[in-house]
């Protein structure tokens, strides 16, 4: 029984965001690789992207008035929730193909689930976003399920 998630909020499940298209550059791969302490040369040199590089590629670039007071971008795919402090939940990624400089990738996102649980310090709302990344030509690159927690 949901106390926080009303039928109106739950009706947002299944919503899709418009696809986002981004160009992969060697510079961005190198920045990500250095920031994450990669040690394999192909990543540090930017010849190939590390497996979680797409997080940086598709992190939403929004104007500052679209950030919450704690600096989190307001995900328009998710309705305004009664709990507002965000925590990372978890991630599952299935890989189909490596990412290289020059790739043009398209990501589509769907709000796949929303549910609540009772945490040790009060109620928590979980939501899941399914992301599918493909090449411009439609070849699958990866699929990802992200879980975020609001407290």
């Amino acid at each position: 029984m949901s106390a926080l998630l009303t039928p109106e909020l739950l009706a947002h499940i299944g919503r899709e965001a418009p696809p986002k298209t981004e160009l992969v550059t060697r510079r961005d791969i190198r920045k990500y690789s250095i920031a994450t302490d990669q040690r394999l040369r192909k990543y540090l040199d930017g010849d190939e992207a590390p497996p979680m590089f797409h997080l940086s590629l598709f992190w939403d670039v929004v104007e500052r008035d679209q950030l919450t007071p704690d600096g989190v971008w307001i995900d328009t795919l998710v309705p305004k929730l009664p709990l507002e402090r965000a925590m990372a939940g978890g991630l599952k990624i299935d890989y189909h193909r490596a990412i290289h400089p020059g790739d043009v990738l398209v990501a589509t996102r769907v709000l796949a689930a929303m549910y609540e649980k009772e945490g040790a310090q009060g109620p928590l709302i979980f939501y899941e976003i399914d992301t599918e990344v493909k090449t411009e030509g439609g070849d699958p690159v990866l699929t990802e399920k992200t879980t975020r927690i609001m407290r």
Partner: peptide, 20 residues
Amino acid sequence: QCVLEWLGEDGSLTSISYTN
């Protein structure tokens, strides 16, 4: 990276999942 450095060039990562 724990998996990739162990694999080297002998294989590839096909899936990862984790919980915070």
